[in-house]
Structure formats: C-alpha cells, structure tokens
Design a binder for these strands. Structure first.
Lengths: 194, 194
DNA sequence: AAATGATATGCAAAATGTTGCATATAGAAA
DNA sequence: TTTCTATATGCAACATTTTGCATATCATTT
C-alpha cells in the first residue's frame, strides 16, 4: 500500500512523469522508500484506474511522450485519510543481508566481509554528502519553515542521523574485524615480523 | 533468498522447530530480518526438499508434534558459499511508512503523528532494554569472544547504535512537532492563558 | 464456565517487489 | 563510428511478503 501513497506524496506539489518519480525515489523519498521504475509505472496505472491521479500527455520531438501525472481531489482526500489511518508501527525494519552474513563470521569470510563493509561505509558517506547538501541548501533554518516542509525536514534529519550512526558503526566494526584478522593463526599479513 | 540463509544461520548452533525459529526472529535475528511463521514453515519445507536441512519429529503429549530441524553438511556448505557470494549492497533500506506520513505533516495530522512518534519512541526504548540486557549478559568483553560470536556481537551493536540514534531523532522530532503545534493558529491547547 | 494467550503447524490468495527483457532517440565520449 | 549514458515507457515471469483463515491442546485468567 505504502508505495501508492509515497507516489501521491511526491505529486503533492508537482506534476510529474513516471520517470521523474523514479528519479525522485532515487533521491529524497528513496531514503525511506525504494521503488523501481517498473513498480512506479504499474502503480501509476493503478492510481489512474481509481481516478486518484489524472494524467496528460506531453509531446516531445523524437522521444516517447511524457505522461505527466497529478493528484486529483479524490486522490488528495485518500492520501489525507491514509495519513490518519491506524499506524502499523513497524519499528525501523532494517532488512539487511549483511547482518546475517556477519553472524557467519569465520576465518574464511573475515576479509571479504571487511571489504564489503568498507564499500558500504563509503557508499553511505557519499549519500550523506548529498543529504547534507540538501539540508544546507533548503532546510537551513528549520524552525522558520512552513509546517509541511518541517515534516520533510524531519524525515531528512532522520536519514542524516541514521547515516552518521551507520558510519560510526562501520568504523567500530572495521576496527574489530581488523584486530580479529591479525590474531588469526596463519595470518599472512604479519609482514612486520619479517 | 536471504530468509533461507537467515534460517540456516539460526540453525548453526541449535536444532530448532519452526516455532522456535519464529521466536528467534522475534528477538535477536529479527532486528535485521523479519519473518512471519508462515514464511518460516514454507521455507523449512523448501530447505528440506533441497536436503539443506534435516528434521526429526518429537512426540509431545496432546500437542502437535514438534519438528526439529538441523543443518545438513550440504546446507552448511551452501550457507558458507552464500556468505562469500557477491554482495548486492542495499544500503540500509529503511522502509518505513512513517516518514512518508511525515512528508504530509499538516495541522490535521500533527497531533496524530506526534502521538504515533511517541509510541515508536517507547517501543524502541523497550527493544533497546532487551538488547542492552543481551549485550551485558553475553557480550560483556567483545574482544575476548571467539570469532563467530564477534560477528554476532557486531550485528547486535549495530542494532543498539541504531536504536539509540532513533531515540535521539524521536526526541528532536517530538520537540519540533510540539513547538510547531503551539504556533498553530487556533491551537486549543493554550490552557495556560486562561 | 468461558475466554484468552501460549504452544505448534499449516494452506491459499492477494499484494508487493525483483529481474530480465524490449523499444526508441538524443547527445556526448571514446 | 561505435559505444555509452540519459531520457522515457512498459510487459511478463518470478520471488517474496502479507493477510486471513484453520486446526488443536494446555494453562491461566475472568
């Protein structure tokens, strides 16, 4: 269900195409909800059928038409209702295979896992840069924002805080993995004892 | 795919029933991977078909039989292989509807959202107590743990750090929502001006 | 005595999400 | 000139997850 409302939320202020929506899921919305373009196009058709969104075609030279979607009053009402609906409260459902792999830490896997963890660390770092940039540019003085933008800011803040915490965890984990690898019998990286 | 390996990981040290597995997903494993009992039973059948787990029935008076599952050498090998497999690196996929609802912050929704946020805060607090208890009891001196337990510890630490960060975010968000609600025209909670 | 909650397992349908493919053009880079 | 990237949309098959139901017993609570 939530994808449907995420799309409508993205349409609150702008008229967007499926492609635009996919982009916007890549950036701002995508921190809390991910969706592929296939899912988005399918859901847009669904929303059109319900008349919760309307669309108009925009001709373009050469390229396929752009279908621009916007929220109808009916869709807007459905969104407003959903916001106030019973909250299922799934507490921070972090579904990440990596933790399962960590449960399987062994001499065979330690180097691989440390490597993958380092990759995650730098990917998160990059994402954080993006979010901090957005924060500085658009949310510099949060207390002065209009109400709805305050909500968006809080979501962004959630992403930023979570990202920073993740970096801190990566650092602790990498340090622990490094020292554990050193203590391993037959560790081939004892170059300093030569 | 990951559920399959999560189950096998849970079976690494103990022989467990479907019910036990569902319990263990509720607690330790469930911080990073959630699964309902229906999913677990289905996956256990699947794993049996592949002969990656074996099972034996345990009679009980009155109650239905308990089917106890354990990892076969073949399953163990498949798990080991999976751990070293190409990592898809889905960076912390936080799928939480609540953030979408926050994007829809309005005078109509602010009280409801503040209430739901407070509920999340206390649920997370409770979960944190549980994890801190486990940490103190079983992972008091992480550097002395055997290698595999270090991995489990790191996952637990990830959960704890994430939980603490979430609490901090909740506090910031609640404060902001409270001050925004006060500034609302027609705020009926101006009891102090009577 | 009846209701609830924990133990213990499972089917079926619906909703959601992923993966692979397919089409088409413009502009930039190699 | 070919290849790559971005724009722009979509189908079909498959995998996964969720929701609702169903069964059965024991122990505790109302």
């Amino acid at each position: 269900m939530a994808l449907r409302y995420a799309i409508m939320t993205a349409l609150l202020e702008d008229e967007l195409s499926g492609y635009d929506l996919a982009r916007s899921f890549d950036i701002s919305l995508g921190f809390f909800w991910q969706a592929s373009h296939q899912q988005i196009y399918r859901e847009l058709r669904n929303l059109s059928d319900r008349t919760w969104v309307s669309h108009r075609a925009e001709q373009q030279k050469g390229r396929p038409e752009r279908h621009l979607y916007s929220l109808t009053p009916k869709g807007r009402a459905a969104l407003d209702e959903w916001v106030l609906e019973n909250d299922r409260m799934r507490l921070q459902e972090t579904k990440d295979e990596f933790y399962i792999k960590l449960y399987n830490l062994s001499p065979d896997s330690i180097d691989y896992l440390a490597d993958r963890l380092a990759a995650r660390r730098s990917a998160m770092m990059e994402r954080l840069y993006l979010y901090e940039r957005i924060r500085r540019r658009h949310y510099d003085n949060p207390s002065k924002l209009p109400l709805r933008r305050k909500g968006v800011y809080l979501a962004l803040l959630g992403g930023i805080m979570q990202g920073k915490q993740y970096l801190a965890w990566c650092d602790e984990a990498l340090a622990m993995l490094a020292s554990a690898a050193e203590e391993l019998p037959g560790s081939s990286s004892d170059a300093d004892t030569a």
